[in-house]
Design a protein around this nucleic acid. Sequence first.
DNA 1: CCAATAATTAGATGGCTGTCTAACTATCTT
DNA 2: AAGATAGTTAGACAGCCATCTAATTATTGG
Lengths: 97, 97
Amino acid sequence: MNNEVFKALADPTRREILRLLGRGEQSAGQLAQRFDMTKPSMSHHFSVLKQAELVHSRREGQQILYSLNTTVLEDVLTWLWDAFGHDTKAVPSRKPS
Amino acid sequence: MNNEVFKALADPTRREILRLLGRGEQSAGQLAQRFDMTKPSMSHHFSVLKQAELVHSRREGQQILYSLNTTVLEDVLTWLWDAFGHDTKAVPSRKPS
DNA sequence: CCAATAATTAGATGGCTGTCTAACTATCTT
DNA sequence: AAGATAGTTAGACAGCCATCTAATTATTGG
């Protein structure tokens, strides 16, 4: 697992972005609205999250839509689970059949 | 949840310390041995982990013994689980009956 | 008490990081 | 094509952070 993932999670603004994306795909502008920060600063945070592969992005017209990359989030969960001392193979499913 | 927890996790040395502590309580010296770094630097990392309440410490003679604080690790797990978009109340058990 | 061992604290330093303003690219509309 | 809107890139800067050396505290054993 890449160190960039944890560094990306170290900033509160970026964690809040991820939390907001948990509700579903959102545009850069929609997200930026929620923070008291210039758009370039927000853009920087998006860039860090993208570099860490915590989010995916696609363009739709003038807007750029961001969404969670749950795969990498799963990796983080697994790492933590292991650190825990549990002999994990995988993160368990929320809905066990 | 405190920002310091995530900042503490942002450093690879500190994550490795936590992983080692997953095997059980260890002294500062034992841990320091494993890293190519001066003891003061290691002491700094211990301090950060302690401040974030990710580890607990107790003195035994000349040595200081560190151990995991699983409670805070659980909080991190829960946060991630939520960011995921899962409607979690708690982190699930590893062995679902 | 003195020396040895274990670990921390103090202080300095180089590099990284979050933020800003200004300028730029891309897309849509008229 | 020109203007408006959405977003990024470039460059600067202050503050933070990981690391080091030197000095200090704490404990044990002679």
